[in-house]
Design a protein around this nucleic acid. Structure first.
Lengths: 162, 162, 162, 162
DNA sequence: TTTT
DNA sequence: TTTT
């Protein structure tokens, strides 16, 4: 019976995405992700970066255009898709195969401080709510803060998990 | 030996994220994801939505502030994190447990047409490159298009995988 | 658009699987997995076990019988399936929900030295190497079967997890 | 920051696993998984098999011996591990890379009727139910061992995948 | 309780 | 090059 080959990878774009169109007018974007596993070195007793995986990705239609507009070299993204084998001929004429990712979902990671895109307007047309500046003020909104730590309860002050 | 419980889910926020701070000043954002499995109904011979999973999520520090600023009700996101069991007392005083997701990575999905946030500037400070217009024009850029479909090669016109 | 909620977890069975049959004769096995995340404690500078996640799992048809025959308390397994929300009434009559895993694939982990099951016979017919000890008879155990379908029936009256 | 590149794949072994030892005596098993995505053909209105992905896998130590004893050509398995890029020289002397899977967990799928291995003995010491047919002797097979470590040695000279 |  |  058939299998499901969907996987998820987190990594950074090694270059800007390349946007193209098929002859029938369908958009396709290609980009390469570098994904660097974190490994704990028992000898050195510290975290080190492992060897990076470079994974070629492709994405289609609207998503391709979104990717080309929203992502650039260095962006950290989460991608979900299917591993696919592609055949090609090298310069010597030998048949070769490579493994790539057919992306179904991709999103820019919101993990770090610089990653604060504007809110997206989901209404028809795709305009976005006006914003004067508003990035990264990064300070507690008084009301919320007070309201929350005033109570006894809710989340305790335990350290976060990572 | 210990296990790794990292999972990835795609879904939509059922409400705006709630941003709070611990007493020590650490930001935490909470939100609930609705993830609706797509199932193929053999009787009706068509795709249908399955029953949604509602998964409570929490995220910490900078990422919490990014989430609060960037995401809102309805947003489609990819989240990666660890399933966690939380204990609490219900109104009758019974000990209960719930399963939640401790989010490590989250990104707004770029899958659909309206999802086109501006490019994020990765330089220190987080300002973003000026842009005159540039959103969603969604048309082939002449040079690229021509250069690509002119050749015989590159990607062929096969239908996309999904 | 709908989402795909398939996840994979590695863990150990906290008890032997429970095998039952629906009134229509379909086998279902239930078991609970304990999955213990490994975390690196920066203070102590060592690996520690995090808090275990206990995840209720169900699996159907042939796979249910395989699970009941092959797995027992303590077994380390890899499971792949969909997170599902289940509604039930607690003793006070309140509507509650729990999150469980609808298992699509499960296999006993071959990671450690003791995990060496016999090779499986893949030939048509499915006979397998003779076994004295009475596993694998593949028939409803009278007590369980009766006890369960005697009730008003169906699968939906199972007790909530934990 | 580093990423986590753990993925899970379900597939079938295209051949028996190959078991070898490094010069330092560490076991390593290699096998190739075929993972065939199931796709729904809207034209034909039916499920079809997509194009298979062939993924080269390696696994180490005890797990390698377990794999060699328990799995054979055709076996359906669940594997979890990290995608890794490997460099090698092709016959023309060109530097090439391939993507493989460093397996951390693997288990034979219990999904189908024929997949019913005996229960595994989990007691200290790792003895297992008596077996007449000679699986699981757990010792290096002379020929393989010799043939492999006789060469100049180490694991790194293995031929590239496919 | 969300959703192209 | 596998496969309920």
């Amino acid at each position: 019976m058939a299998n499901d080959t969907v996987i998820t990878i987190v990594g950074n774009l090694v270059a800007d995405p390349e946007l193209r169109w098929t002859q029938s007018g369908m958009a396709v974007a290609n980009f390469t992700l570098a994904s660097t596993p974190r490994t704990f070195d028992r000898q050195a007793n510290e975290w080190k970066d492992g060897e990076a995986l470079f994974l070629r990705c492709s994405i289609w239609r609207d998503a391709a255009e979104n990717v080309a507009e929203s992502l650039e070299k260095g962006a950290r993204v989460i991608v979900q898709g299917r591993l696919k084998q592609r055949s090609y001929q090298d310069r010597e004429g030998n048949q070769r195969t490579s493994i790539e990712l057919d992306v179904e979902e991709v999103g820019p990671s919101l993990r770090y401080a610089t990653a604060r895109p504007q809110k997206v307007d989901r209404r028809q047309g795709g305009q976005r709510a006006p914003q004067q500046q508003g990035y990264g003020q990064g300070q507690p909104q008084q009301g919320q803060h007070a309201g929350w730590t005033d109570q006894q309860g809710g989340y305790d002050d335990t350290p976060p998990p990572f």
